[in-house]
């Protein structure tokens, strides 16, 4: 059985459509933005595999905007909108809870 919360398993990247479960099955992420969407699931994994959570090496001359321009909450809001549009209300409720939890964690947003 998966060793991560169900909420996480069903999380889907709005950019590429990959779910966290897809990633756990194949070991491969779908797009750069997955690092934002699946951040909570990736951190314990990176801790285990890489024994670190933070990059300390080379930085590009220009930072890429795709990833920096998105915040995790913004990504979740995007997903929420999609879920509502496709009438997946159960999924929408889960995402809403995730957003609330994240906002609480961040103080305000």
């Amino acid at each position: 059985m998966p060793d991560f919360p169900v909420d996480l398993a069903e999380l889907r990247c709005p950019d590429c459509g990959t779910t966290f479960l897809d990633f756990r099955r194949t070991g491969k992420l779908g797009c750069p933005y997955d690092y934002v969407v699946f951040r909570d699931g990736l951190i314990p994994l990176l801790d285990r595999v890489q024994r670190s959570q933070h990059h300390t090496g080379k930085k590009p001359l220009r930072a890429s905007e795709v990833v920096e321009a998105h915040s995790p909450v913004r990504a979740l809001r995007f997903q929420l909108r999609q879920a509502i549009e496709s009438e997946e209300y159960q999924q929408a409720a889960k995402i809403r809870d995730l957003i609330r939890a994240r906002e609480k964690q961040n103080g305000s947003e």
Binding site: G27, P32, H55, K59, L61, R62, A63
Partner: peptide
Amino acid sequence: DLVEERVTFAFSEEFGYLTACPTNVGT
């Protein structure tokens, strides 16, 4: 460096260069 002058690579301050497999992420 030379390639980077012409294209924008996927990078985040937190995780570094973003790769398809997290076993390569960072550097």
